[in-house]
């Protein structure tokens, strides 16, 4: 078990500073799984390209979940794909984050009522950190989602919250 992989009952300045350093390091280099599902993936690619430049936030696509920190579920999650998504998520090293991009992966989208083959939201198989609405969301919306995720990571703590 890693030194920082445990909960401390009370914080002090050393823990706080280490926490800040690690959170900063984690949020500044969120490598994503190179993984696209449907039309949202086109927007995701546009976000990665030079005009919107995902790289300025430290997000670069990796060919393997072993090297990734974040998985962007970009598109319709069919039942067949859900099994694969679950396995890809499981194979990512901790700490790992999930951005659900677009209506389909948020809640099933247009397939909500009659989609016999679509999972009604990817959060039924893996825990989602940030939901990005839109059908598909514009690159700006995805960037907003990433900033929200960075905000979430910045406020993470290994000190046990007092009840």
């Amino acid at each position: 078990m890693g030194l920082l992989d445990q909960e401390f009952t009370e914080g002090n300045i050393v823990i706080a500073k280490t926490e800040d350093l690690f959170n900063w390091a984690r949020l500044s280099s969120l490598w994503q799984v190179g993984f696209g599902l449907a039309c949202c993936a086109i927007e995701m690619m546009a976000t990665s390209a030079s005009h919107y430049d995902f790289d300025r936030f430290g997000v670069i696509p990796r060919p393997s979940p072993r090297q990734s920190d974040v998985i962007i579920i970009s598109g319709t999650v069919t039942f067949k794909m859900a099994i694969r998504i679950k396995r890809l998520y499981e194979q990512m090293p901790d700490p790992k984050y999930v951005i659900s991009m677009g209506s389909c992966s948020n809640c099933g989208g247009p397939y909500w009522e009659h989609g016999y083959h679509v999972l009604k939201g990817v959060d039924r198989v893996i825990p989602v950190d940030v939901y990005v609405p839109g059908c598909p969301p514009r690159p700006e919306a995805l960037l907003e989602g990433l900033l929200k995720l960075q905000e979430k990571i910045r406020n993470e703590s290994i000190v046990k919250k007092s009840a």
Binding site: M1, G2, L4, D5, F22, P65, R84, M92
Partner: peptide, 18 residues
């Protein structure tokens, strides 16, 4: 020393694109 270590069966299996 620092990193989280939470190995599971799924994580340790061979990666074949899911």
């Amino acid at each position: 020393l620092l990193r989280p270590k939470r190995p599971t069966f799924e994580k340790l299996t061979t990666y074949e694109c899911g």
